[in-house]
Amino acid sequence: MKISNIISILLMCIFLVGCSTSNSQEKEPVIDEESAQITYEPIVKKDQVATDVTNQKKQEGHIEVIHGKMIDQQVVSPIGQSETPFNVYGDMAVKVYILNTGTESFIYRIQNVDDDKRLDYGILKGKESFERVFYDLPEGSYIISYLVEEEGFPMDIAFTEQVYIVE
């Protein structure tokens, strides 16, 4: 039993050493156009924790850089209401985008859960959208809630919602 444990540990070590892709000896050729000489410089590799494509969008003279999606979903609610929570940490600017993909109008409300402070609200009719960037939000929990505008029997609502961290 001891020999099989030692062999499995050795095999794991060999596997882990063999999986290492960083090689400090790798060099990239650099061509000097003036002297027509080729020199080799070390390749600098940085480990990536997450792959995130940064999007840039020009709006009225300033560039909006989107760093990551917090929420990106399409919702169909048969009961005529829905809620989506999200959190804000530190000094983050948050962009909220809502598109009513259904035919029924509904009321949306964005508010801070901790102090019930309402940041924005409104009514979206079929095919209408809402988009706004919130700057300097206090750290905490927030919620986007949706409710069918008309009273009576609950109707289906359908919408797309996206919440981004922007700079």
Rank of each mutant, 00 (worst) to 15 (best):
G126T: 04
Q25I: 07
P85R: 07
N5Y: 07
S4F: 11
M12C: 11
I6S: 06
K117F: 11
N87E: 15
L124Y: 03
Y146P: 11
F153K: 13
G90Y: 03
P78W: 00
V30T: 13
T39Q: 13
Y164R: 06
E26T: 15
I123T: 14
E41M: 07
E34H: 11
Q25P: 01
L147C: 05
T101G: 03
A36W: 02
G18F: 03
D116C: 01
K95T: 03
T84G: 01
D114Q: 11
Y164D: 15
S24N: 10
F134P: 04
E128P: 04
Q37H: 09
M70H: 05
T54Y: 01
K117P: 00
Y135W: 07
Q81W: 09
E104Y: 02
S35L: 08
V113E: 06
A50N: 13
E64F: 03
D115V: 06
P42Q: 10
V53Q: 10
N100S: 02
D32M: 08
T39M: 08
G18L: 07
Q111M: 08
T103N: 12
K57N: 09
S105V: 01
I98C: 01
H67N: 11
K45R: 15
F159D: 01
S4K: 14
K57C: 03
Q111I: 00
V166R: 02
E41V: 11
K27N: 13
Q59W: 02
V17E: 02
L124M: 03
G102V: 02
V49T: 11
F15Y: 12
R109V: 05
N55S: 10
I63P: 01
F106G: 09
M70G: 03
V49E: 12
E28H: 08
Q74I: 05
T103I: 07
S22N: 13
I38Y: 00
K57T: 15
L119N: 09
F130H: 11
Q56D: 05
E150R: 12
K69Y: 15
Q162L: 10
E139N: 10
I143H: 04
D116F: 11
L137N: 05
S20F: 11
D120H: 11
I66W: 00
